Lab assay of single mutants.
Amino acid sequence: LGPKYVGLWDFKSRTDEELSFRAGDVFHVARKEEQWWWATLLDEAGGAVAQGYVPHNYLAERE
């Protein structure tokens, strides 16, 4: 699936296409579209919880 990303700060969605998340949440990014990335929010087991657009500057690649 490629690298995983972690949320740096809490983010509250403003549209139906955006995905709310908390700092520390883990994502798989499917598409990078300039300022907004289409991402899947993952649970602790790595299963998909939700999908939506997230601001790229709120995520960091997980080491």
Rank of each mutant, 00 (worst) to 15 (best):
G7H: 04
W37Q: 00
V26Q: 09
G46L: 06
N57Y: 11
E44R: 08
H56A: 15
T40K: 05
G46M: 05
L59S: 01
L59R: 02
V29E: 02
D10I: 08
V6G: 02
F21C: 07
Y58H: 04
F27P: 00
V6M: 06
G52L: 03
L42H: 03
L19M: 10
E44D: 12
S13W: 05
A30T: 15
A30V: 15
P3I: 14
W38S: 00
F21T: 00
E63I: 13
D16T: 10
A23N: 04
V26E: 10
R14C: 12
L42Y: 06
W38K: 00
P3Y: 09
R62Q: 15
D10Q: 07
G46S: 05
L59A: 02
H56E: 09
R22S: 11
E17K: 14
Y5S: 00
L19R: 00
K12C: 14
A30M: 15
V54Q: 00
H56N: 10
G7W: 06
K32P: 04
G7L: 08
H28S: 10
A30H: 15
L19Y: 04
E63A: 12
P55S: 05
N57F: 09
T40C: 12
Y5K: 00
S20P: 03
T40S: 08
K12M: 13
S13A: 15
G2C: 15
V6C: 11
L42D: 00
A39G: 03
Q51K: 06
D10V: 08
G7F: 07
L1R: 10
F27V: 02
F21Q: 00
T15S: 13
D25W: 06
Q35C: 15
S20R: 02
G2Y: 14
W37P: 00
W36A: 06
L59V: 04
R62E: 14
A23S: 07
S20Y: 05
A50I: 06
G47Q: 15
A45P: 02
H28I: 15
H56M: 13
R31P: 03
A48R: 08
A50V: 06
Y58K: 03
G24N: 04
A30C: 13
R62N: 10
D25L: 07
V49T: 06
V26K: 07
K4R: 11
G24S: 03
W36P: 00
G52C: 07
E61R: 11
F11T: 01
Y58P: 02
L19V: 06
E44P: 10
V6H: 04
W37L: 04
L1D: 13
Y5P: 00
N57A: 08
E17G: 12
E44C: 11
E34T: 11
G46N: 06
A39H: 00
A60G: 08
Y53A: 02
L1G: 12
G46K: 03
D10K: 04
K4L: 15
E33K: 07
A60M: 12
G7Y: 05
G52Q: 01
K12T: 15
F11I: 00
H28D: 08
D16F: 09
S20I: 04
F21I: 05
D25R: 02
D10F: 11
A60V: 15
F21E: 00
R14N: 13
E18S: 06
F21A: 00
E33L: 09
H28G: 03
V49S: 06
W36I: 06
W36D: 01
K4Y: 15
P55D: 05
